[in-house]
Design a protein around this nucleic acid. Structure first.
Length: 336
DNA sequence: TGGAAATGTCTAG
DNA sequence: TAGACCTTTCCAC
């Protein structure tokens, strides 16, 4: 799936272009028709990401809602009491949002893109290279005349959210449901710390405690969203390599300073991923190498997806194995 | 055209 | 731990 950085970027995109606007909600596919009816005509008042959960808050029916121009910050610690209804979306392995119409660049280091979520090869290339012809994105140059707005839904669109000028289509989510504020509070209570929500010493101490209190292999703990929020299969493998840590090490045997280092590395990787929209996890790249890695996914990682290829540090073939049902990549020489 | 794979999570046994 | 589920894309046949 889209790991935590992608979900934060999606929240930023909704904050930029949807929060403060009355939203028409529908389910072209039909599987979310009842939920869409609950949200249709409400004003979006909040857009937040916690780990891999996207939470979109909506005010009272009829388009009323928040004051202050309708704008609310994405990064609000704790539960925002105002939204009456929350749309929770979890993209799972294949989910993705497609944005059309007015799409704002959400960070200074990334272009406006039309799709965020699970990697679709052609789109991933377009996102990485910032090619021309993205769907009417502000700041890009259309190949031909702008396509009609709103466009016809493409594929299995579970939810379509539309304002006067912007549109978001959701396809393939694992979870898509309307929650009450109480439901959201329960969800947040179960989640491990997310650096962009729970920054500071307390979050770090919480992460270290959760990482070192169970005998479960650290490779599994890092993927457990109740331990730390937002880490997925790529970041898991890369963080363990960067720490030179054997994925099978029981959590109880991970030294406190190593656990703290894992958390701090996650803080940096997540921040970089949110800023750039790209997961570049190699430590051995200079500026030019990093630019090449941004353009070419095959150059971005030290171990992930490199089974059988030589370790970039020691030359030992990278091992691929199953851990808790997922492919794990690691170097048996460097990671001890 | 069918199978496999993909940045994930949940449930039953 | 195995299987189900969500969807799209690529590749072998």
């Amino acid at each position: 799936m889209p790991e935590g950085h992608t979900v934060h970027r999606i929240a930023l995109q909704f904050d930029a272009d949807f929060v403060g606007h009355v939203v028409a909600a529908s389910s072209p596919q039909g599987r979310f028709a009842a939920g869409a009816a609950l949200l249709d005509g409400r004003r979006m008042t909040a857009a937040r990401a916690v780990g891999k959960h996207l939470l979109l808050g909506f005010g009272p029916a009829g388009g009323a809602g928040t004051g202050a121009g309708g704008r609310r910050a994405v990064r609000v610690a704790g539960l925002d009491p105002e939204p009456e209804q929350w749309l929770r979306v979890h993209l799972g392995l294949y989910g993705a949002w497609d944005f059309h119409g007015r799409i704002s660049p959400i960070t200074t280091q990334s272009a406006a893109v039309g799709s965020m979520g699970a990697p679709r090869l052609r789109r991933a290339v377009r996102m990485g290279e910032g090619e021309r012809g993205l769907p009417t994105a502000v700041g890009t140059v259309p190949d031909d005349a702008p396509p009609p707005f709103p466009p016809e839904p493409v594929g299995q669109v579970r939810v379509r959210l539309m304002t006067a000028g912007s549109l978001a289509d959701l396809r393939g989510p694992t979870a898509c449901e309307v929650l009450t504020p109480e439901d959201v509070a329960a969800l947040l209570a179960k989640a491990g710390p997310d650096p962009r929500v729970d920054a500071g010493a307390e979050a770090e101490a919480s992460a270290v405690r959760r990482l070192t209190s169970r005998r479960t292999p650290v490779g599994q703990l890092l993927m457990d969203q109740s331990v730390i929020s937002g880490i997925g299969n790529i970041y898991r493998a890369e963080m363990l390599f960067r720490a030179r840590l054997d994925p099978h090490t029981p959590g109880t045997r991970v030294p406190t300073e190593v656990a703290r280092g894992l958390w701090r590395d996650w803080v940096e990787l997540l921040d970089d991923g949110v800023r750039t929209g790209v997961m570049v996890t190699r430590e051995d790249l200079d500026a030019a190498g990093r630019a090449r890695a941004v353009a070419d996914p095959a150059l971005r990682h030290a171990v992930y997806g490199r089974a059988g290829e030589p370790c970039l540090v020691c030359g030992t073939p990278i091992v691929r194995e199953e851990m808790a049902g997922r492919s794990l990549f690691w170097c048996p020489t460097c990671q001890v």
